[in-house]
Design a protein around this nucleic acid. Structure first.
Lengths: 146, 146
DNA sequence: CTCATTTTGTTAACATGTTTACTAATTCGA
DNA sequence: TCGAATTAGTAAACATGTTAACAAAATGAG
């Protein structure tokens, strides 16, 4: 840090450190997704739907870290591609319930192995204990109240 | 995880956990930046330039986690707004050297306090030891070879 | 030296991010 | 019960993300 620098080192800035770490981790995932083809966002949506079952769009947006306007557009193409289905909720007609289709699940299944290889590679290099510790700290961080 | 779920819990997926953690941390930063007004990306660029001095665009792109096409556009507006200067390198005429201006530094300085308050708030809630440990793990993760 | 290759950056096209404004359905208090 | 406030989602506009194609300058093997 020079006398000209007003802020602390970017490598010790949590937002920037999180971003850089994510770029490192995502590099091989992006390679995998390019072969499907599928975007990061659609992949996250499929994973969330696979995990949570049939949920409303706001839930997907929150879990997959997407804003609703983006989600609206992305789900439109995913529905057209047969990866998800959408239906109006009976009780609350404002809500749209979204569910993954067999075709959507198929995409997850087909890339399960490649996905595991990537995780294993990272785990092998960082060490299982450190990885677990990191995931725990990240979960704690999400619980911090702003 | 249900019998239908092909992948592990998204909260134990490193890419998704990093993204969610970052969203948590960025929420107050975004509030701060909206008052300037300034985008996340421009803020990162100013921080990197403040830290590294006069550098070429590829370096900025790498440090601030931006792709060159995005950077080209963003620097164009930042130059027009007087926050940075650009000049052709004498030795390698392919390179453009970029430097922060006094006006750009002023923006950092004016928001230094708000920025510190946000960091302190997170540190207070997570604890200094955990925060340091987290930053160390994130730095280690970036060194992982893919 | 010379030409193929690499490096640095730009442009274009389309997807996604982000904000604001909007509609429709629901909730809740007077 | 009614109307204000809230909630779920969409539309539009502009910024940024992402890929492919490109140009110009530098490099390197022959």
């Amino acid at each position: 840090m020079t006398s000209q620098s007003y802020t602390k080192s970017t490598s010790r800035s949590l937002p920037i450190a999180l971003l850089r770490a994510r770029e490192t981790v995502m590099a091989p995932v992006r390679d995998m997704l390019q072969n499907i083809p599928m975007t990061e966002q659609k992949w996250r949506i499929l994973r969330v739907l696979d995990e949570l079952g049939e949920v409303e769009q706001s839930t997907i947006a929150h879990e997959a870290c997407l804003l609703l306007p983006s989600l609206t557009r992305i789900l439109r193409t995913m529905e057209a591609d047969g990866q998800i289905t959408r239906r109006q909720d009976n009780h609350d007609k404002r809500c749209t319930k979204v569910k993954i289709t067999d075709e959507g699940r198929g995409i997850l299944e087909e890339n399960l192995l490649a996905s595991l290889v990537i995780s294993s590679n990272i785990e092998a290099q960082l060490g299982r204990e450190k990885l677990d510790h990191l995931l725990n700290l990240l979960e704690e961080l999400q619980a911090v109240k702003i």
